[in-house]
Design a protein around this nucleic acid. Structure first.
Lengths: 194, 194
DNA sequence: AAGGTACAATAAGATAGATTAACAAATGAG
DNA sequence: CTCATTTGTTAATCTATCTTATTGTACCTT
């Protein structure tokens, strides 16, 4: 929990009173592997900061295919922001891939905090700004890079995730089939041998 | 210009003093068709709110291919947020497709405003939040929908843009070639006739 | 009217990545 | 420890989309 406060303080300086205000509304919660923090159709009522564990956020289309839109590990945020903002049913599922402990901030309390402590609002502006920049980057990459390039970049950027989650989920994140990823990996291995 | 203030007031209520504070830092500027608001390699120093006209934001890869990542029309924002935040060279180009008038907020002044008027910070949090949600939506759609479905959705959501920009740019936005888009359009026309 | 420029349509061959299916290896529950 | 389930591999065939090239259309310009 102090971990979360430290992280927040690295963006904005809160005084003791503000910290204790904040701490009052935080809820620490642990989910088991396989459990859902958010399910499609739920209203997402919390922002979830991951203290430990690993999650995936995915979308399920009518034909039942899963599309992983994000992974989340220690120090990342998880949830369905669209649902959170508008308080409408979530499009996404957020599932734990390991036992996962999060810090939750409930929607109502966060709105209060925004008014009481503008620095908290600043903090979330900063966080969302960079999330948006990453999302744009991902859109560009999906268009401009081949599956192989996307995979190599992913491995370079998130080596730990590659270790922690099954290959077929990485394939889904990259927008390819698990068979094709397997193919790419053996190509890459061959290239490195020669 | 009052147009911009009205728009802003629909998100947060500013008093007269705050409005005049804000107005002091705003710059209205007009670009001609073909001119660039931001060019790759520039540092993007302003947030640009479009009063009239039309722009495209695109990325140019090493091989010279253009990827349009966004269009912008009246009441939308344009710029390279990544460059703006970190004050590093822009990855994107923002070019006017028509004569375009924007309201600009310079970076330094905006940082000041954030501190003086927290409501301005709230306003941008709200704006960026929904931009992020849209970006996520676009990522999902690019994965889960076919080119044809993506085109039909685009036409349904942005009928005006379809009228105002050349087809090859729409193809680029959708991540397909102009030839294939032409193909899809004739398919769709055929279907509607039968 | 003639040529120039910008955009759109059509068609044929090429390719990245999907699909299917069969198998191998790893993991985990009992 | 063992059997069942989950995960990963390989290979053949298939499909959506790309590439290249050609032709068509509609304006501007002079």
């Amino acid at each position: 929990m102090t971990e979360f406060i430290d992280y927040l303080q690295s963006y904005v300086q809160l005084n003791d009173q503000e910290v204790s205000h904040l701490v009052e509304v935080l809820v620490e919660r642990t989910y088991l592997k396989g459990q859902y923090i958010v399910q499609e159709g739920d209203i997402c009522n919390t922002q979830n900061y991951i203290l430990s564990g690993m999650v995936r956020t995915y979308y399920l289309d009518r034909s039942g295919t899963e599309y992983i839109i994000a992974f989340g590990q220690e120090h990342w945020w998880a949830g369905d922001l669209g649902s959170f903002i508008t308080q409408t049913p979530a499009d996404f599922n957020v599932q734990c891939l390991e036992n996962t402990t999060v810090v939750q901030i409930p929607k109502d309390q966060l709105e209060d905090l925004y008014l009481k402590i503008p620095k908290i609002e600043r903090f979330f502006r900063l966080i969302i700004q960079s999330a948006y920049v990453s999302a744009q980057k991902r859109i560009v990459r999906n268009f401009s890079l081949s599956a192989k390039e996307r995979y190599l970049l992913f491995v370079a950027e998130y080596p730990t995730i590659v270790q922690r989650v099954p290959q077929y989920m990485i394939a889904s994140y990259l927008g390819i089939t698990k068979e094709f990823l397997s193919n790419l990996r053996s190509q890459i291995a061959k290239e490195q041998r020669s």
